[in-house]
Computed example of a mutant assay.
Amino acid sequence: MTATRARVDHAVSSGTFSLDGQTFDVDNNIWVVGDDAECVVIDAPHSVEDILAVVGDRTIKAIVLTHAHDDHCRVAPALRAAANGGSGAPIMLHPADRPLWELTHGGPDDETATLWDLDLADGVTIEVGGTTLQVLHTPGHAPGAVCLYAPDLGCVFTGDTLFNGGPGATGRSFSDEDLIKDSIRARLFALPAGTVVHTGHGDDTTIAAEQAGLG
């Protein structure tokens, strides 16, 4: 097997999450996948500067959002504008998350509203730095929630679908507890047991560890 050039870089950014009239302080993981020349940014939490510090001087091929809660997409338009020395990079989001996106970035009646650039869909692949990210649609935490599986790297980026300790929260608008569990069992537990799970918040885990907990 040809060795991949790609790697995973990581940092943590702090800010807030707001939904249903409540606001919480949160720490979000920043994940950047690529090689020395190019990369993909997974989610856009809180601070463009924090994200660009991880990117360095690499070309950003895309900003891929696991879902559109504000702590994951708030600075996506600003990052798009700043990326690649100001020449920009496309934002990718599953269109089922448009209602959540519009809570942060405006709807059709808002003159200042902005949208993402490219739609994600189940089965889409994203090539970067000699490796491939496979899009898995995993609704439940949000209607358009996706996970990104990197088989060459032996890991999956789960956003807020699966954490170290179980499924993501489903007690707020646009979420569904039964659906997130179905998504995890059908899509994530089908991955190799040793797959490392890089989450949207908190520590890594593995598919095997979470399968033992959720069953």
Score class of each variant (00 low, 15 high):
92 M>N: 05
56 G>C: 04
34 G>E: 12
145 A>F: 12
3 A>V: 10
26 V>L: 02
111 E>M: 01
18 S>T: 07
72 H>G: 13
203 D>L: 07
161 T>M: 06
46 H>A: 02
196 V>E: 00
111 E>K: 01
191 L>E: 14
205 T>S: 03
103 L>Y: 04
156 V>K: 10
56 G>H: 05
62 A>L: 12
215 G>K: 02
123 G>Q: 13
152 D>I: 12
111 E>D: 05
39 C>L: 10
58 R>E: 05
166 G>N: 08
211 Q>V: 03
130 G>K: 10
145 A>C: 12
121 A>T: 15
128 V>P: 12
15 G>K: 01
195 T>M: 04
179 L>N: 04
134 Q>I: 07
169 A>R: 14
192 P>Q: 10
107 G>I: 09
92 M>P: 06
199 T>C: 09
153 L>F: 14
83 A>S: 09
203 D>Q: 07
160 D>A: 09
184 I>P: 02
159 G>A: 14
183 S>W: 13
143 P>T: 09
69 H>Q: 11
21 G>K: 00
194 G>L: 02
169 A>P: 11
193 A>E: 14
134 Q>H: 15
193 A>H: 12
142 A>L: 10
149 Y>G: 11
3 A>E: 13
46 H>D: 08
68 A>Y: 05
10 H>K: 02
180 I>V: 15
212 A>W: 07
213 G>E: 05
158 T>C: 15
130 G>C: 07
32 V>P: 02
83 A>G: 06
7 R>A: 12
136 L>T: 10
204 D>T: 03
19 L>E: 11
197 V>Y: 02
60 I>V: 10
214 L>F: 03
187 R>Y: 12
111 E>G: 05
14 S>Y: 09
174 F>D: 00
124 V>P: 13
91 I>T: 03
34 G>V: 00
6 A>L: 04
9 D>W: 00
186 A>I: 14
49 E>D: 13
51 I>N: 05
28 N>R: 09
